[in-house]
Nucleic acid binder design. Structure first.
Length: 320
DNA sequence: TTCCGACAGTGGGGTCGCAAT
DNA sequence: ATTGCGACCCCACTATCGGAA
């Protein structure tokens, strides 16, 4: 079951949850031994081998019952004073795709299964029951007794604005609203609504990458940078979506007119060989979800040029 | 006739593993 | 030994087309 993107709905018919930044997974628990547990990714691939401690935890905790759970595999960042632990997709990537992770890796990047729905229980399908009833069944499983497992909290009596604030304050991806009376359905539905938290950045264009396929001959992506206090230009990412076809052509023409031979960036730029450089003069705005650990934009999309802004006005926004 | 939803195709940051160089 | 590439994860967005309203 997948959510539709939109504003956070309000009203008594909706229950709000926080949206976790991790990897979606279904857990099928068929017995009390770890090999009786199967974790399946969103594209139906078995990923149990990558998270053996989760299989063991589920077998140990609910193995006496037959259960199918929907949830998220999450890696928490290392908490430091002033920065409590929060879900880190960057860290989870160190575990994804690694079959039979070493004890050292499991210790360095511990993962948690955050359950938020139950699809079958004791051999009986419960997907047709309303969310409210499934939620009660989920809470009755006692998953939180195990340190590697948790039940995703829902925000009782919290309005949409406060829910978004809460999500932001805890480093969550956004808010997920679910119709209380709706059954669990596969595919994208209107009864789940996701509202991600967006950030925006104004940055200078230091180059561009030519487009491929249908964008052949036009612009594929712009290369953005932020000036440091000493005037050096730090690369922060490629942005290649959010343009219309006409917009790509227009921007390419402007950048070609400003072409220079050498990179204006003072930090490394990926795919440097295919990059075209330009004078770092034009300021644009991009929307993105978060900074990566390397200081790059994650899920960036182009909003447009900011002719009202000058390069020397730019400042790096607070990272988090 | 118009609108909407699903899908294909473009683009991004990452990781890992294998084949080619 | 290094590099390139595809397959995976996460995803945003535009353009298109067929069916519903």
């Amino acid at each position: 079951m997948l959510a539709t993107a939109g504003e956070v709905p309000s009203g008594p018919g909706w229950a709000l949850e926080l949206k976790w930044d991790g990897m979606r997974a279904l857990a099928y628990v068929e017995g009390a031994k770890p090999d009786a547990v199967t974790l399946v990714s969103r594209n139906q691939r078995a990923v149990t081998g990558s998270y053996p401690e989760l299989a063991a935890a589920l077998a140990e905790t609910v193995g006496t019952r037959q259960v199918a759970l929907d949830g998220e595999v999450v890696a928490l960042s290392v908490p430091t004073p002033g920065a409590p632990a929060r879900p880190s997709f960057d860290r989870l990537q160190l575990r994804m795709g690694v079959v039979k992770p070493s004890a050292a890796l499991r210790a360095e990047v511990p993962v948690t299964f955050v359950a938020f729905d139950v699809l079958a229980l004791d051999g009986e399908t419960v997907a047709d029951r309303p969310w409210e009833e499934r939620r009660r069944l989920l809470e009755g499983l006692g998953l939180d007794a195990h340190p590697r497992l948790t039940t995703s909290p829902w925000l009782e009596g919290v309005d949409p604005a406060a829910a978004l604030e809460l999500a932001e304050a805890h480093g969550m991806e956004g808010v997920l609203a679910k119709r209380r009376d709706a059954p669990y359905r596969s595919g994208r539905t209107q009864t789940w609504v996701k509202t991600p938290i967006w950030r925006t950045v104004e940055a200078v264009i230091g180059g561009w990458a030519p487009g491929r396929g249908r964008n052949h001959g036009s612009l594929g992506a712009v290369l953005l940078g932020l000036p440091e206090t000493d005037g050096r230009l730090r690369y922060i990412g490629h942005v290649g979506t959010g343009f219309t076809h006409a917009g790509r052509d227009r921007l390419r023409d402007q950048l070609v007119a400003d072409a220079v031979d050498d990179s204006p960036f003072t930090t490394a730029v990926p795919e440097e060989r295919s990059a075209r450089w330009c004078r770092p003069r034009l300021v644009g705005e991009a929307r993105f979800r978060s900074w990566t650990d390397d200081g790059h934009l994650r899920h960036p999309s182009w909003r447009g040029l900011r002719p009202d802004r000058d390069v020397d006005e730019l400042r790096a926004p607070a990272r988090s």
